[in-house]
Design a protein around this nucleic acid. Structure first.
Lengths: 150, 150
DNA sequence: AGTATATAGTCATCTAGTAAACTAATCTGG
DNA sequence: CCAGATTAGTTTACTAGATGACTATATACT
């Protein structure tokens, strides 16, 4: 269907986009059914859990690539579930920092195998290690290039 | 950050997902600002334009990976803009088929360079041809495998 | 033929996330 | 040191899309 006329990079980009969106839907379904979490919620938990110090709202917004208002809602949700805790930042009284509760850490532990199983089922059977390496390199490069510019 | 402990395919999957979502946001912004179209609208136009015959609503839903209700809204939008036309399917009176109008074809032509410029700027500078080939292959394989199953 | 079941599309309702206005705190330059 | 400009987060109003109920048509079974 005219696929042949397109430059390689264009097909690579559109195919990647399309497949990723499908992956997202499938993963989110599993996670939501099992733990009542959205992918954004999980991503937030992961980021907060990963960090050495409690994270600011604005940092979470950047990491999840969502708006500040959206971040407020994500953290509201997680706080209502008892998974995170908001505290005023001591250094900057405008800022709020967020940290995991014990329940949050446990939720994260429960979510891990669900995400893993989903990713494995959807991806790993269809990927060689060499291809994985290429994907990781490409995605990192593209991400970094575009984060720098905006 | 524990990134090293993860299997390759897991990192490949998460990086791809994350980068793709960012790409989507950036592309959609450009397209919406320039043409007042959402990425879903454009995808619908593309699919309809691509096909030899007018497409059914249900087929469009499948292609865009959105719900039937969502498809109704997409086509409502495009019809209001004068870009598509709904007609009852002669063969199956439950079904509706959608075709492009002249204005729709023109909108598609105008959108093309915007999408291209976006994709090129975001991607092409950071991708070798070899990498593009890998991406296309992998994405096709993953997509096909998961479309078959559900 | 005639009932049961499945399918196509729409509509009404709901939810996640955006965008812009708002509040409060911090930084900057005179 | 204080007036203006920035920045952090929240709130409100809105939008895209999902979900499920509903209508109309088509198919399958007996």
């Amino acid at each position: 269907m005219g696929d042949e006329e397109q430059p390689l990079w264009r097909r690579a980009a559109t195919h990647t986009l399309h497949t990723s969106l499908m992956l997202k839907v499938m993963l989110e379904d599993r996670l939501h059914e099992a733990e009542g979490l959205l992918l954004a919620d999980h991503e937030a938990l992961l980021n907060i859990g990963h960090a050495e110090e409690p994270l600011r709202m604005s940092v979470i917004a950047q990491r999840l690539v969502i708006s500040r208002g959206g971040t407020t809602k994500v953290i509201d949700r997680l706080e209502a579930m008892g998974y995170v805790l908001r505290r005023p930042d001591a250094d900057d009284r405008r800022a709020t920092v967020v940290e995991l509760t014990r329940a949050g850490r446990e939720a994260l532990k429960r979510a891990r195998p669900i995400i893993d199983a989903g990713l494995e089922e959807i991806w790993s059977a269809y990927l060689t290690d060499e291809e994985s390496v290429v994907l990781i390199e490409v995605m990192d490069r593209v991400l970094e290039a575009n984060q720098a510019c905006c």
